[in-house]
Amino acid sequence: MSEENDGKKFMFVNRRAPYGTIYAQESLEVVLIAAALEQDVSLLFIDDGVFQLTKGQNTEGVGMKNFSPAYAALGDYDVSKLYVEKESLEERGLTLDDLQHLTWEDEDDDWAEKDSIRLISRDEVKKLIEEQDVLLSF
């Protein structure tokens, strides 16, 4: 799928932190459904949404399911575009190193392992939003 898919481009816009509300987990659930149906799916993380991708989440003490390992399965679902807004990350004192290292394997490049997270600027976010056929906000 991805670029050569002539279906519609779906982008999931995530702007909430995980656990405090159900939005992040619900978004991920719908992403997996859309990807299982082989749609061209990408994810955008802005505002507090960037907190969804921090590494080392451990929910044992709060009695909730830690759903963050599922982000690492997105590559298996051919979801290879996870856009993270640089400004949102910086405003929160985070860098790329604080996020999970997520990868996908490029079938067209001898299954080379490539990074899924793409750091983009706020200006690039504007353009990206305009390029989508369907936007789903969480």
Partner: peptide, 28 residues
């Protein structure tokens, strides 16, 4: 593409409008 953005939260309580203004393109 021109997009219609809807905002349903008060700007005094949530940052939805600010986020929208920062990331909507000319013509939207």
């Amino acid at each position: 593409m021109a997009i219609l953005h809807t905002v349903n939260k008060s700007p005094y309580e949530k940052t939805s409008l600010e986020s929208c203004v920062q990331r909507s393109d000319a013509g939207a």
